[in-house]
Amino acid sequence: MDVFMKGLSKAKEGVVAAAEKTKQGVAEAAGKTKEGVLYVGSKTKEGVVHGVATVAEKTKEQVTNVGGAVVTGVTAVAQKTVEGAGSIAAATGFVKKDQLGKNEEGAPQEGILEDMPVDPDNEAYEMPSEEGYQDYEPEA
């Protein structure tokens, strides 16, 4: 019985440690998101679009440190934060509304985080759909 109880105690310690790591990862992701939003706020009209992409990228980098179902929630929060940063930029006159959601080359930025393969159960990952990809044929 002692062996059984000791095993359960060790398992509990492992769960607590994993929860603490997840909590730490979420806190880091939130900190990076805040950094990115402050970065966007300090940019001029020309830099705002690039700044919004930076927020998304920093958040995406930190999301990889967070495991399990938390990833889905962090990704949703990050996307809403990026959308909010863009709205703030438009409201303050840093950028025109028609410039939001495009990178410096004018290509749409939507789907940055949505296409990231995420499995809350950590069982399997699927690649994003290939609808947006084109076949590449090298020139002879």
Rank of each mutant, 00 (worst) to 15 (best):
K23E: 00
E61K: 06
K97S: 08
P120D: 13
Q24T: 07
A69C: 03
L100E: 10
E83W: 03
D121E: 05
G36R: 15
E57Q: 14
E110M: 15
V15C: 05
S87M: 10
S9Y: 03
E83F: 14
T81Y: 04
G25C: 15
G7Q: 10
N103G: 11
E20P: 00
S42P: 00
K97D: 14
Y133S: 04
A78W: 12
G93D: 06
A89I: 15
Q99D: 14
Y125D: 08
H50Q: 01
Y125S: 14
A76Y: 13
A69G: 08
K96F: 14
Q99L: 02
G132V: 01
D2R: 07
E110I: 10
A78H: 09
V26Q: 00
I88K: 03
G47S: 15
E131Y: 12
G36N: 15
M1T: 00
Q24C: 15
V49W: 09
G93M: 06
V16P: 00
A124Q: 11
E110D: 06
D115N: 14
M127V: 15
D121M: 06
Y125W: 09
G73K: 13
P138T: 08
M116L: 01
K34G: 05
K60N: 07
L113G: 12
L8K: 00
T72Q: 02
G47C: 14
T72A: 07
K21N: 02
V40A: 06
V70E: 06
H50I: 12
V77D: 02
E28F: 07
E83L: 14
M5Y: 02
D2Q: 12
G41H: 02
E130P: 11
T75D: 05
G132Q: 15
K23A: 09
A56K: 10
L8A: 02
Y39L: 02
L8W: 15
A19F: 15
A27D: 03
G84E: 07
E123Y: 05
G84K: 10
S9I: 11
E105I: 09
K32L: 15
S129A: 09
Y125F: 13
V16R: 11
K45H: 08
D121K: 12
P120T: 03
M5T: 02
S129T: 08
A27Q: 11
G106N: 08
S87A: 13
G36E: 04
V52K: 00
G132P: 07
T81A: 12
K10Q: 10
A107E: 12
T33D: 00
N65D: 03
G67C: 07
Y136T: 03
T75S: 06
D115W: 11
E61N: 03
G51V: 14
N122D: 11
K12E: 00
A18K: 03
E61L: 03
L38R: 08
E83K: 14
E13H: 08
A91W: 13
V15Y: 14
E104R: 11
A90K: 10
K45W: 15
G14W: 05
P108D: 10
D98T: 06
E105V: 12
G86H: 15
E28D: 11
E137R: 10
T81G: 06
H50K: 05
A91H: 10
L100Q: 05
V95T: 14
K10L: 04
Q99A: 12
D119G: 14
G73V: 10
G41I: 09
M1L: 03
A56V: 14
K10T: 08
V55S: 01
Q79P: 02
I88Q: 04
K34A: 10
E110R: 04
T33L: 13
G84R: 06
Y125E: 12
M127A: 11
Q79R: 01
D135P: 13
K96Y: 12
A56R: 14
E20Q: 08
P138L: 15
